[in-house]
């Protein structure tokens, strides 16, 4: 839908290339040098604590496995070839994506109404409600997951409720499998999706919605033709954060997956901690990172195009 809008943009005034923020282009004074100097400690710190390990990791992925816990410094692409040609490994990568997309979808669908409500409410309790949304982030992942186990177990609350409502005949396996991981991860990352959506919806002028209703739009039409398209930047932002956190999450898949869910993070852990194949573990980590970066770039490009 927004594509259609971009179509007619070969105009002399302002194309989407300059991101549409016309008003802010006037202040183009160069930033004072001292800001550069002041950022130096952070930049150096990041280089040391982030850049260096990633460089070492990438180097490891290019070396040959030479027995448990050792690499031989011969540069080769064999690890990558091994990963990308074996259906077993590709399946793990695919499962990781599936997990990511499922969690993103669940967060978007369940989080959207909450985000919309929080963006539009004038209740005095709004601050409190936002706190409640963010609250899962304040709890350690271990505690949060431990909390899910009794809820999702065979004799847990959820199964009790499902049986009571007659939706199932016998308890469903909700933990120690993929479903458990999806539920636990969705819970953990939901706040990010809600906050991203809320900020974007808040910026949609409520009078725009009133204009749509005034022109005859039903609530349904108002949502799909006005609110939803305008909130896509929020969805993209939420997708970006939720997806990258999900595909790299380890604690929740490890705890709620019951050692049965093999996604990239749990697989890397296996390779590094038990198989002691540092080279292949590093390869998987680099591939996961590359995918995450690629998706980030795509999402950022998309939201920039939408201004």
């Amino acid at each position: 839908m927004a594509q259609a809008g971009v179509k007619g943009s070969e105009l002399p005034i302002r194309g989407p290339a300059d991101s549409g923020q016309g008003a802010s282009t006037e202040r183009s004074e160069p930033l004072p040098i001292r800001w550069g100097v002041l950022s130096l400690p952070a930049v150096l710190g990041l280089l040391f604590a982030f850049g260096l390990p990633i460089a070492l990791l990438t180097a490891n992925s290019l070396f040959r496995h030479a027995g448990p816990g050792r690499v031989a410094p011969t540069v080769t692409l064999d690890n990558y070839v091994a990963f990308l040609t074996d259906p077993f490994f590709l399946r793990i990568l695919l499962d990781t994506f599936v997990l990511g997309f499922m969690v993103v979808s669940i967060c978007a669908i369940l989080g959207y109404p909450v985000a919309y409500f929080l963006a539009r409410t004038r209740s005095r309790c709004r601050g409190m409600m936002i706190f409640l949304v963010v609250a899962p982030l304040l709890v350690s992942a271990v505690i949060r997951n431990l909390g899910w186990v009794p809820l999702l177990g065979t004799n847990g609350f959820v199964n009790w409720l499902l049986l009571l409502l007659g939706l199932v005949d016998r308890p469903v396996a909700l933990v120690n499998n993929f479903v458990g991981v999806v539920i636990g991860t969705s819970h953990a990352v939901m706040p990010f999706m809600i906050l991203m959506l809320m900020t974007v919806i808040q910026r949609i002028n409520p009078e725009i919605e009133e204009a749509a209703v005034n022109l005859g739009a039903s609530q349904w039409q108002n949502f799909w033709q006005i609110v939803f398209p305008l909130s896509i930047p929020g969805l993209l932002g939420g997708y970006l954060i939720v997806f990258t956190i999900t595909i790299s999450s380890f604690t929740t898949p490890a705890m709620l997956g019951g050692n049965r869910v093999l996604i990239m993070s749990t697989f890397i852990s296996q390779q590094v901690r038990f198989v002691l194949n540092y080279a292949f573990g590093a390869t998987c980590a680099v591939i996961l990172m590359a995918v995450a970066i690629a998706l980030t770039v795509v999402a950022v490009r998309q939201s920039e195009r939408r201004g």
């Binding site: 839908m1 809008g5 009078e207 009133e210 204009a211 006005i226 398209p229 305008l230």
Partner: peptide
């Protein structure tokens, strides 16, 4: 409306 309230994503 005072804020024009045009649909920003439409021509």
């Amino acid at each position: 409306f005072q804020t024009y309230a045009l649909f920003p994503h439409m021509s």
